[in-house]
Amino acid sequence: MMNNKKQLTIAVSGLNAIDSPGPGVPVIRGLREASSFNCRIIGLAYESLEPGIFMHDLVDKTYQIPYPSSGTDSILERLLYINEKEKLDVIIPNFDAELYPFIRLEKRLLEMGIAMFLPTLEQFEERHKVNLNDFGEKYGIRVPKSKAYHEIAELSNISKSFDYPVLIKGKYYDAYVAYNIDQIKSYYHRIVAKWGAPVIIQEFVHGTEFNVTGLGDGRGNTIALVPMRKQYITDKGKAWGGVSISDKRILELTNSFISQTKWRGGFELELMKDKKGEFYLLEINPRLPAWVYLAVGVGQNIPEALVNLALGLKVDPMKEYKVGSMFVRYAWDMIVDIQEFQTISTEGEL
């Protein structure tokens, strides 16, 4: 049978399918199931043991790329090399930390024929954990009280501003519950060593955690939206199981977020419902989450829609999804020839 689907080459990062998983592998699963195109998948990896590198049924070829902290020039240089070999059509960056350099490179990459569909720099900055209070005030969304701390000395007076326990968060990743100043200081050092300053202290809201993933077209329209309740949470706070739900207030809140911010790209909202039934927006992740395959599984292939938006194609909003479908994550041991590990480690590509 003739296959008239277009063929795309799509580069995807976030291949770290580990206990705190990146979204790369589930994004690729969505792309592999796309009905509107076939694709060759190029993995972009930072570490040579990211499991996605060795998943050859999902990833056709992987290149190591420099860490975001190395600056946009070195990232661009590497992407020029990769593009020369692979002729990329689209890149989907999946880490918060790499979004800033990729947003800055968006125009340059487009000139090279590589499309992305990312939030604007203004959207990226505005939703930052450090700015969450201002964000909530501006858009009329309830958020827990948060404050950024750049120096450990500033934390000494924290009990004047917050009641214990509090959440202490890194600017990109990591969050811990702290019950006293000693724990706060210990977590401060741990977080700053990994992610740099500032840390964010946030009011701890007791309740039930809900997450939403979706896609905004950049003009205020919701292209996709699937809410989920975490059913099984790991000690790192990651969902190991979840179920799609249909709470109207979550749908309204998310549509309002997209229409007011004119959000461009994929996202994840982290929500907490307190004992009074009020929803608090805890965090806005400006990229697709690691559980995005649930959205694919319930009828909204968000990675596919994101690629088509990146290519400037018209994408109709996906309004329906199956409620009451679960995802259950699992760990899987792959057997990998040491030669493959040597190749990615020494040559930077596999």
């Binding site: 039930t208 309740r229 799609s244 739900i245 249909s246 009451g324």
Partner: peptide, 9 residues
Amino acid sequence: IFNPDTGES
């Protein structure tokens, strides 16, 4: 019993 609003079963 499954509550689709809250995801509780």
